[in-house]
């Protein structure tokens, strides 16, 4: 069980590919910073490899004007939820 943290927008498709290679069936992906743009419906293909096990950091999505535009498949978590995810998953790995 691993939590993957991603902070780059979907235009870094090589990064998303490398992450998908390491992503396991019980893993979760948290989109922070510019990775919030991956939570837009138009970017759904960039998240296809992650099987709906994806959340986005609400404060980063909000500051970017993305609340209300996000894909229904992506869960919103606040900063406390971010900490809680790192506590739930024994390992975290940051991709950038």
């Amino acid at each position: 069980m691993m939590l993957h943290l991603l902070n780059r927008s979907p235009q870094f498709d090589g990064l998303y590919w490398d992450l998908s290679e390491a992503f396991g069936a019980d893993d979760h992906l948290l989109l922070i910073e510019d990775a919030c743009y991956a939570a837009l419906p138009a970017a759904a293909a960039s998240l296809a490899a992650f099987g709906g096990r994806v959340s986005v950091l609400s404060e980063d999505a909000e500051s970017r004007g993305l609340l209300g535009r996000l894909s229904d498949d992506v869960a919103l978590v606040d900063m406390a939820g971010f900490v809680a995810l790192t506590a739930t998953f024994p390992h975290s790995l940051s991709w950038f």
Partner: peptide, 17 residues
């Protein structure tokens, strides 16, 4: 290959990228 790479990463207690 991707399946073995995934297993490698998940077998490790500490990983830095």
């Amino acid at each position: 290959e991707a399946d073995a790479l995934e297993r490698l990463v998940h077998a490790q207690p500490h990983t830095l990228l």
